[in-house]
């Protein structure tokens, strides 16, 4: 990796770090802001979505989130496929840490949904660990129903809100 690309990755990671502080942390929309350090050149731009080592690639190409059935925390085959790819990326890019955010749709009481979001985040984390990701790089947090990404009151929106989002950030030691 060139000095420049390393610098750009750090810049992107700093953008992520800023993104994860305070109020925006829970948005779960991990793609926000990643393009900031990427520049506008054609080809494989370090830090952009076509750089396989970039967070943007993780978020957009691999997919940063898995979805769940109503009131369930078990992983569907589609979710497992996504997590297989997430695990592979995390093992390759070992400088990164991940916080797995668990979320629920609005059909449930507030307290229960926090616990349900934790179950989903934990199921996701346990799967990544089973695929070889070091446990000390992973952490879970539940937002319950507090941070929907879709706002209609129909199943099409609920389905997208029942999610676990793997939010990656540069580790302190790198």
């Amino acid at each position: 990796m060139t000095y420049l690309s390393k610098a750009l990755m750090i810049a992107a990671a700093l953008g992520l770090a800023a993104c994860t502080s305070g109020d925006r942390f829970g948005a779960g929309s991990g793609a926000d802001g990643y393009g900031a350090g990427a520049g506008a050149n054609a080809g494989i731009v370090p830090g952009s979505a076509n750089d396989p080592q970039s967070p943007a690639y993780f978020n957009q190409t691999i997919g940063d989130r898995v979805l769940f059935l109503v009131d369930q925390s078990s992983l569907t085959p589609e979710a497992q496929a996504t997590l297989d790819a997430q695990a592979g990326w995390l093992m390759t890019n070992s400088d990164y840490l991940a916080v797995i955010e668990g979320h629920a749709d609005e059909q449930g009481t507030r307290e229960y949904n926090i616990a349900l979001g934790a179950r989903r985040a934990n199921a996701t984390m346990e799967y990544l660990i089973s695929k070889g990701v070091a446990p000390n790089r992973l952490k879970i947090i539940s937002y319950g129903k507090e941070r929907p990404v879709e706002i209609c009151s129909e199943e099409s929106c609920y389905a997208k809100n029942r999610r676990a989002v793997t939010v990656i950030s540069m580790g302190l030691g790198s």
Binding site: S73, A115, A118, R119, N122, E126, S142
Partner: peptide, 9 residues
Amino acid sequence: YSVTSGSNT
């Protein structure tokens, strides 16, 4: 109060 540890609350 409730405490969540892993998947358990």
